[in-house]
Nucleic acid binder design. Structure first.
Lengths: 410, 410
DNA sequence: CTCTCTTTGTGCCGACACTAAACAAAATAC
DNA sequence: GTATTTTGTTTAGTGTCGGCACAAAGAGAG
């Protein structure tokens, strides 16, 4: 028997992947920088850049960019090819779904108007959002490298099933990833290189948001990034370690909603009391402020807006939000003791809280974490508007970043 | 059977490191297995094995081992060279210190009788234990690849300082790693290849114990391994992710002693109440059992012995230990929700608890973790007797595993 | 016993990613 | 103008590993 072809040790052997990652995260403006960052010779960096250009991923300026104050030959600028391939990103949330095309660097190239239907089974909703995305691909004529789906639920690995699809009319255990892939195949979103359907990935929305923030937002450069956020469906967490999402052994890590932050707090559906989830969500804010929400926009939006506009002036809001900040700080401190991240990024209502009074929040985290004083952890608001959508695209871009030639041709 | 070495493998990027890791963890009995595990051709596996033999790390049997039931040409056995190089392992604990020489595969080659002096400053104790280790090297004449030190304190990275050296007459912030290195250089434990002092590493004892258990003990094969244990200095945790110790951004991760497991529990020195630390330590056991410890052996030893010998028969001990098991289970469940490990290994008194009633402990973990029912986490007792010592050696072996030729020369 | 099949190990060559070093180019400094 | 600095390219060379042919060492069939 002839020996089977093996590629296991070939992964990562080429400098192409790391180079593309640098371009992707905006850290490779020129070939000279690429040389330094990759630790290779100028010859290699030049060859790598040429290869990326040949793959249609980047453009190299014909004319050098005038340097400001340095001597030496000026560099030619490397830029992400604006006409390059894109990833199909889809997001399903409590209010409906969204689709977009996202290019390298997390740039949203095209978006479809959102839709508000959620009272349907997974197959129906996923089918619709894939159809919308496919339409985007057809009208723009873009080449597609893959597709990613963000869902408001923990996604089990490696099954790809949604375990707690709260606020969605889905049963637990819905095979979202396989459904997504089937829809991609049916809709004819095919890979121009390999002829088959493009690879489809599905993950929790906050997890992929963390990925997006790490690469293009407030988490850029962090080695161990912790992201915590309140969405429409409770508090969630995500962890990015050395550039990779840590989802645990079965995709269920960072279920931080039920950390106890007040032993005498509100009862939680998990059976305990004073969970981070029920103590720092929009309902807790309105209750603490003695207000009632309007029936118009979502509770989350109203709560964030309330904190943003009234924290400085309204003592009632200040006290209510302060209560949430203290509880959140306690939860974050517990996570700091366990995970020791070098940065924390907050999303959703938590983002509004840190923007309103980051000083207070950071103080609580420092006081209640064991090593807070030896170097307090930066706690920042998230930066990207559509981080879940961009993050869904990251899932699809990942194989390309790992092995550009293997996925795009050659 | 010797093979002419025509080409030398490139340092760092070759299959040599992964191959040595397989040998080290006992997963490479033959070249054929090496071929399959590495995903390389037989030619490469053969060259790699020859290189490891040339480095003096392994031996290749001259005669093939008779296969039991399979056909085909029988394999020649690969074995760790019993006369190969060793790592110098040192451990400082509450009762004294220990030193040993540890070969590849975590095999303890030589040990020095322990010593009980701890009422000295770090420089003094470290100097003594290094002298004992150097004497071991002199008498055995073994080649030394590096040295590792395990201390009962969190070690800050990258400073290498001991942050909370409890039960030791050390001030916080003692530069244990640099002291260790200085002692190695002074004592003349030098690297035969490079002429300089051997590389010295220092880390928390439970962290390195986790490393040892992952590679040679109860954690073998786990992708995400959580280790929790009670020692003489409180409860600690450690996490091994994809074979690497996760110590967080500054070495302070997994400080799990102050998870709240009983809101109305005993007051803790951290200012809170009912921390995992004070609820599951030997003192808590004796108090719950209404017993007092003897003054002879250490509290930890007595507590573990009590659980081991009396849990089955003595209702008082059973109830007291059961109380600790429930509290421990609650703490572990919280960690499972955050880290989602695929295995948990318990050390110290916690090991005695899981050995006494693993069923009860696993039940609590499953009940109180959010996804317990979808697949409960295995909780196992630690297997290695001297896991901190073996783990300290792992620190020293790591550079060799990463780049055999670069560290051992060639 | 011989013949065949299966599996393991080795020799040889080429593919390929990268380095090293020389050369060329484009700016600033003097 | 020339010198210097920095960037990019060309060419030759090195080392790793895959592919393939072949050899070796057993089991099983006849």
């Amino acid at each position: 028997m002839t020996q089977t072809r093996t590629t296991r040790l070939d992964r990562g052997r080429s400098a192409l992947g790391p180079a593309l990652e640098l371009v992707h995260t905006g850290q490779a403006p020129t070939r000279a920088v690429l040389t330094a960052e990759l630790g290779v010779t100028r010859a290699t960096a030049g060859a790598v850049a040429a290869e990326l250009e040949a793959l249609g991923l980047i453009t190299v300026d014909a004319h050098p960019t005038a340097p400001v104050g340095s001597q030496g030959r000026p560099s030619h600028r490397l830029a992400i090819d604006p006409a390059g391939p894109v990833a199909l990103a889809a997001q399903i949330h409590a209010d409906g779904y969204r689709a977009a095309l996202v290019g390298l660097g997390g740039r949203i190239v095209a978006t479809a108007p959102g839709c508000g239907i959620v009272d349907a089974d997974p197959a129906q909703v996923i089918s619709e959002v894939v159809e919308v995305g496919a339409e985007l691909l057809r009208t723009t004529g873009r080449r597609c490298v893959g597709a990613g789906l963000a869902v408001p639920s923990a996604v089990a690995e490696p099954e790809g099933t949604a375990l707690n699809p709260l606020h969605l009319a889905w049963e637990a255990g819905a095979p979202v990833r396989d459904t997504f892939r089937a829809c991609l195949a049916e809709t004819g979103v095919t890979d121009q290189v390999h002829g088959a359907a493009v690879a489809g990935f599905a993950a929790n929305d906050l997890n992929v948001a963390a990925l997006a923030e790490h690469r293009h937002g407030a988490g850029r450069g962090a080695r161990h990034l912790l992201v915590v956020g309140t969405g429409h469906h409770g508090v969630g967490g995500a962890l990015v370690l050395d550039g990779r999402l840590h989802t645990g052994s079965s995709g269920l890590a960072l279920e931080v909603g039920h950390l106890t932050v007040d032993p005498e707090g509100r009862p939680c559906h998990c059976g305990s009391r004073g969970c981070l989830d029920v103590e720092t969500d929009p309902v807790a804010l309105f209750d603490a402020a003695g207000r009632t929400a309007d029936s118009g926009t979502s509770l989350l939006t109203q709560a964030a807006e309330l904190v943003r506009t009234r924290y400085a002036d309204d003592p009632g809001v200040r006290e209510a939000a302060g209560r949430l900040i203290d509880r959140l700080g306690l939860g974050l401190a517990g996570l700091v003791n366990i995970l020791n991240p070098d940065r924390i990024v907050l999303a959703g209502l938590h983002r509004a809280l840190v923007e309103a009074d980051g000083e207070r929040l950071r103080g609580v985290v420092a006081d209640r974490s064991l090593w807070g004083r030896s170097g307090s952890v930066p706690v920042l608001p998230s930066e990207l508007e559509h981080n879940s959508l961009v993050g869904a695209a990251e899932l699809a871009w990942q194989p390309v970043l790992d092995d550009p030639i293997g996925t795009l041709g050659g």
